[in-house]
Amino acid sequence: MTIGRLGVVMFLLFVIESTLVPWFIPTSLAGRLYPHFTLVFVLYAAMYGTRHKALMLGLLFGLLQDVVFYGSLLGLHTFAMGLIGYVTGLLLEKRKVTMMTALFTIAVCCMLYEIIIFAVYRVFWFTRESLAYAVVDHMLLSTFLQLGFALAVYVPARRWVQSAIPVRQPEKEEE
């Protein structure tokens, strides 16, 4: 698995989250569940790869999301994904990350990502929802969706990232 292949996998995920996933969300939950599968992969790249690669992937796929679904703002997802990828990498890159740590980090980061997105739209008055309402309405549910996805792809994602982005310290390979 090279970094290019990882990119292709993430592009497929990006396509799937905007085409297939809306059909599998039950109608009663429509408008409350939003998939961000590429973000999960950016976080895996940050935890099991390097922070620079995570930043790069985050910026790339954030930009893709921004350009493809350009409504009124450009660069928001680029910023949010890049920032989260980089900061997660900065904090956890050098540590040994177990599965529980990884899932916990993903949950926190997904929440953070939703909050950044909400905050920017709120600042520019694109929405008038309150933060408390937004958290209950879609942020928590979406985070659980991301968590489920992260758990499902944990094993292959970790293997792919570790073979695509070689890390210098060899003692991190197996735990």
Binding site: E17, S18, T19, Y34, Q65, F69, G71, S72, Y121
Partner: peptide
């Protein structure tokens, strides 16, 4: 396709 951004 449909965007996966709640505010856009």
């Amino acid at each position: 396709s449909v965007s996966s951004d709640p505010y856009n």
